[in-house]
Design a protein around this nucleic acid. Structure first.
Lengths: 244, 244
DNA sequence: CAGCGTGATGTTGTGCACAACACAAGAAAA
DNA sequence: TTTTCTTGTGTTGTGCACAACATCACGCTG
């Protein structure tokens, strides 16, 4: 409690000018989120080599703060820094992620169980808005937009629990696995049909969950979510095996 | 798969001389574990200020690798670096850890559920050995030794699952909460009796779990563990409230 | 022609100096 | 005497230069 106050530690209340320390924090988050999005949307495909100096130049800072971001991304196994070689976007395979998915199943269920927060009108509106985006996607399938909606949907679901450690861990595991669909699907021959099918299923999931959210039964949200994550992984693994 | 091989990337098979990169990794782990132990055993009590330069001198390195360790410890909320002030050991309160404990309960159960590994003879022997240490502790109660045994016990239990993400997360949450007993209990008046009582209960837990491990029922191990973590937290919270 | 050794090149890791910042003590003014 | 401003001291954050390392190309040798 004594250390959690991060509102205005400085006394300069003349203007709302943020302290340098806070600006550095925001800068860190900005770079971190940008790079994470790029990795998870395959703008940086697996195996891509990132040069610290290029990133430093792009974001207008020195190598040092860039390295802080890279270290964090490496701790989440999205990157891998090898001395003398470079910083490389990690490659992932469907089979390797089985344990992560098994854990994600359980955590998805826990979101409705540990410290659930009753969704207010604004949150329900957000869910409805996302459902609308989903329906729009049905008419114009796009893998990238699908991935983005999926991401927003995750964050919305994650906000249904007040258990901070659970949210943090769920987020980390989500970003650890979300690339695999784009990567695997893009290699398959029936890419377009696969995408449309996946969007249809996802749309049903969102519709089901929005119903449960409106009723206020977060336990059921957990069940639905768990089932869909599980089936999504199995579909992906089967498709991957069938093609090889 | 392509990046996971960390055995011997270098071709120098003359001797088993580790590469500089590996030595740096070991050094990092060594410093990291040392500091983590010191924090969790209250050698560095909450509020303690750590000077990067002192640590750099103690471990014979520059400030830079020290900072890497401190950043990781800060990410696990054991430390807090404040610009211009210092690196401070975080303070914790029983109430704040309730969410973490709730999550730990569930994860403890998952250890027996996700990818359980059948304990071999060596592992069972390790459990028996720990039980013996526990019994020895009954004759000569010591808070610090109690904390150490508790730590070893946790690692032993954690090795019962092959789910790597689960192990990592459980470990992190364990080290996030384990200080609270030493900190809270040392403030109470009936410290000695409290300690002895806690050791007795812990001894029973270990005995129960060793039985379950010998039978090979890891699901039951999870149940017992969950129950004991829960009760341990409630005891601590009640004692804390009663004294205030 | 194949294989190996050696140097050139580019990358990340490390050490160091300085900037930014917080805090406390002391002096000066009300 | 109290309050406020200033300055000194100590800390972490940042930028930069160099060391350690891996890779590749080229030439040499068998």
């Amino acid at each position: 409690m004594t250390l959690d106050d991060a509102e205005s530690p400085d006394g300069s209340d003349k203007g709302d000018q943020p302290s340098t320390d806070e600006r550095a924090r925001e800068r860190f988050d900005r770079i971190y989120n940008t790079l994470r999005i790029r990795i998870c949307l395959l703008d940086y495909p697996p195996g891509q080599r990132l040069r610290e100096e290029d990133l430093a130049e792009e974001f207008g800072v020195s190598r040092t703060p860039i390295r802080r971001v890279l270290v964090k991304l490496e701790a989440e196994s999205l990157l891998r820094s090898v001395h003398g070689v470079g910083t490389i976007v990690t490659d992932i395979e469907v089979e390797e992620l089985e344990q992560v998915y098994q854990l994600r199943l359980e955590l998805a269920q826990l979101i409705g169980k540990l410290s659930p927060v009753a969704p207010d009108a604004a949150k329900i509106a957000a869910f409805r808005s996302l459902l609308a985006r989903c329906e729009a996607l049905l008419g114009k399938p796009d893998a990238r937009e699908f991935a983005r909606i999926n991401m927003d949907f995750f964050h919305l679901l994650n906000s249904l629990t007040a258990n901070e450690p659970l949210r943090e861990i769920s987020e980390r595991l989500y970003y650890q696995t979300t690339r695999i669909w784009l990567k695997t699907a893009s290699r398959l021959s029936q890419y377009t049909e696969l995408l449309l099918n996946e969007i249809r299923i996802f749309h049903r999931e969102v519709a089901d969950i929005v119903d449960a959210v409106e009723v206020g039964d977060l336990q059921v949200v957990g069940y639905i979510r768990r089932a869909h994550i599980s089936m999504s992984y199995l579909r992906l693994r089967n498709e991957s095996r069938r093609s090889s």
